[in-house]
């Protein structure tokens, strides 16, 4: 049985090395521009950085996938074509694409290059996945985080496209690619600019008593008391008042995905690649969680029936979660 692939995120060279050293089979990354969905300041790869990274990972027999997974508009379609050309020239083992215009370009110009359908394409059922296969010959889909393991099994039974699923890290509560909360509040679109709630719109104001008010483009998203932690401020993780005056995390608690306990379910449902979210995170996060996932996946294959999550994995994972709790997201039920 071929083992499920482990994908580590890298937003810079040191994270790439950390992922490789900790046992990732593949590092996924993007260029430092708006052609990828983690376009944050100071993050991602110039061509020179990437060349050095490629040399490092090739030396260890590892692969890299290039995410070119945002949506170009009128004036800048050429930039996405250039990114595709650059990725192919650099020898990417796969391109992760979302936009049909870009998929068409890549599939026609580079018919032998392996194309993966980005989570940003929102393909959450086998009819949609097979549609993308028919038109763009995709080999793999990254599944939106809206599915149960049972639903993933149904998809797997009805397509021969490989399935990749998120297992650890930050969690979008709304289906990826169809969420405009960031652009509604800031004008910065996750789909077109590649960044949800960019830091230029975020304000952290200390309050009396050691707390903090967090706002996004002048909209208050949260008021933290002294010592209270919160993840990076996005609209979905804000506290809001409902009509009855109650203040709550109306969309999502500050929580991160930890589906290590579902490794058997996911693999047995047909998932062949497990992905760690967090190209914007530090090398220490990347190294830690990649190492945990490596150990967990290897232990599954030693004896699938007796797989158990080690307490140590849970504790170490929680430490990386920026004070948030862990959740199974939609995997265990809606």
């Amino acid at each position: 049985m071929e083992k499920a692939e482990i994908l580590g995120p890298a937003g810079n060279l040191s994270s790439l090395k950390a992922a490789v050293d900790a046992g990732a089979d593949v590092v996924y990354l993007g260029f430092n521009d708006s052609t990828n969905a983690r376009n944050f300041e100071g993050l991602n790869f110039t061509e020179d950085d990437l060349r050095e990274g490629i040399e490092y990972l090739r030396g260890k027999g590892k692969k890299f996938y290039l995410a070119i997974n945002t949506f170009p508009q009128a004036s800048n379609f050429k930039d996405w074509e250039n990114s595709v050309d650059k990725a192919v020239t650099l020898g990417a083992d796969a391109l992760i694409l979302a936009n049909t215009g870009v998929l068409k370009y890549a599939s026609e110009k580079y018919p032998t290059t392996r194309l993966h359908l980005s989570v940003q394409a929102s393909a959450s059922n086998y009819e949609a996945i097979n549609f993308y296969k028919k038109h763009f010959n995709i080999k793999r889909v990254i599944l939106p985080r809206v599915l149960t393991t049972g639903e993933i099994r149904t998809i797997s039974e009805n397509t021969d496209v490989e399935l990749e699923a998120f297992i650890l890290g930050g969690l979008c509560i709304n289906i990826e690619g169809r969420c405009y909360l960031s652009s509604y509040v800031t004008g910065a679109s996750t789909n077109t600019e590649g960044a949800c709630s960019p830091s230029r719109f975020v304000d952290f104001s200390p309050t009396d008593g050691g707390g903090m008010t967090i706002s996004l483009n002048k909209i208050t998203l949260n008021r933290l008391s002294a010592g209270e932690k919160s993840p990076y401020p996005t609209c979905c993780k804000g506290r809001y008042l409902t009509s009855d005056g109650e203040l709550s995390y109306a969309m999502e608690e500050p929580e991160s995905l930890n589906a290590l306990s579902l490794i058997p379910d996911l693999i047995e449902a047909g998932v062949s690649a497990l992905k760690i979210e967090g190209r914007q995170r530090t090398k220490s996060y990347v190294g830690t969680v990649t190492g945990i996932l490596r150990e967990a996946v290897d232990s599954y294959y030693v004896n699938p029936a007796s797989f158990a999550v080690k307490k140590e994995w849970t504790e170490k994972t929680r430490e990386t979660f920026e004070g948030t709790s862990s959740t199974l997201g939609s995997y265990a039920g809606k």
Binding site: F71, N99, K104, S122
Partner: peptide, 25 residues
Amino acid sequence: KTYNKHDAFFLESIGVKNICLPVEL
């Protein structure tokens, strides 16, 4: 997600007749 004319060309090629554009365009 019809964000550019290439998306529209693709949709036209598969027989789409009418497009309601994404709200954020």
